[in-house]
């Protein structure tokens, strides 16, 4: 595996910032690779890893269906393609999704990550917040968490490794090839999570 091919799902949301963060991380780690925005099914075939960025999960799910991306994505991830889901991305990957305010919704999701997610857990935009969070990457480390109408993980299955908690909420997890956070690393200068994802991706792809 010499040249990594990394995609950012480019339906809606914070695509550009994720592309920049991946580029920066590739450079820092000295990996050779390319990053591209993905919004066609055919673009998925050569990917070594994918980021599903923050945005509106209902919109991303609905519009992905229009491009027949959803099923192919499901198959690829189920077959071991590394994926990093951020905020809306976390919601799309999860097995169980509820809304804090409304309860059960008809949110389309992929049923891959064995967690129970509550959308808009921390409240509406006024209650969006920044906080330092402790996270176990290769080692325990501290990063700035940007939580925007963020979801929270209420329960995680036994195969899910909890990387970070904030009070009672689980905010970052890993399950084999799936990495997911409820906060937005792409909005900060800190690229530690991307570096972690890239090294995870390299390890999985070299198997």
């Amino acid at each position: 595996m010499s040249n990594l091919n990394i995609g950012v799902l480019s339906i809606q949301g914070d695509v550009h910032e994720n592309i920049l963060a991946v580029k920066k991380s590739l450079q820092k780690l000295g990996y050779s690779g390319t990053v591209c925005s993905i919004n066609h099914e055919y673009q998925l075939s050569n990917l070594d890893g994918l980021i599903i960025p923050g945005g509106e999960s209902t919109t991303i799910a609905k519009l992905s269906m229009k491009r027949y991306l959803f099923k192919t994505l499901y198959d690829k991830i189920n077959n071991g393609m590394p994926v990093f889901g951020i905020c809306a991305g976390l919601i799309l990957l999860s097995k169980h999704v509820n809304d804090k305010n409304i309860g059960k919704t008809n949110q389309i999701h992929m049923d891959l990550l064995d967690v129970e997610v509550e959308r808009n857990y921390f409240g509406r935009q006024q209650y969006s917040f920044e906080s330092d969070v402790e996270i176990i990457l290769h080692n325990p480390t501290k990063i700035k968490g940007i939580f925007i109408r963020a979801p929270s993980i209420k329960k995680a299955g036994k195969n899910v490794q909890i990387l970070s908690k904030l009070n009672d909420s689980i905010i970052a997890v890993r399950q084999n090839n799936i990495l997911a956070t409820s906060f937005h690393p792409e909005l900060t200068h800190d690229i530690k999570l991307y570096e972690y994802f890239l090294s995870m991706l390299k390890k999985i792809n070299s198997k």
Partner: peptide
């Protein structure tokens, strides 16, 4: 915990992009 910073406010708008 900090609320109402520019990162949070502008970041919210970022989540609406291409929508």
């Amino acid at each position: 915990v900090t609320y109402g910073t520019s990162t949070l406010k502008r970041g919210f708008a970022h989540m609406l992009k291409n929508g």
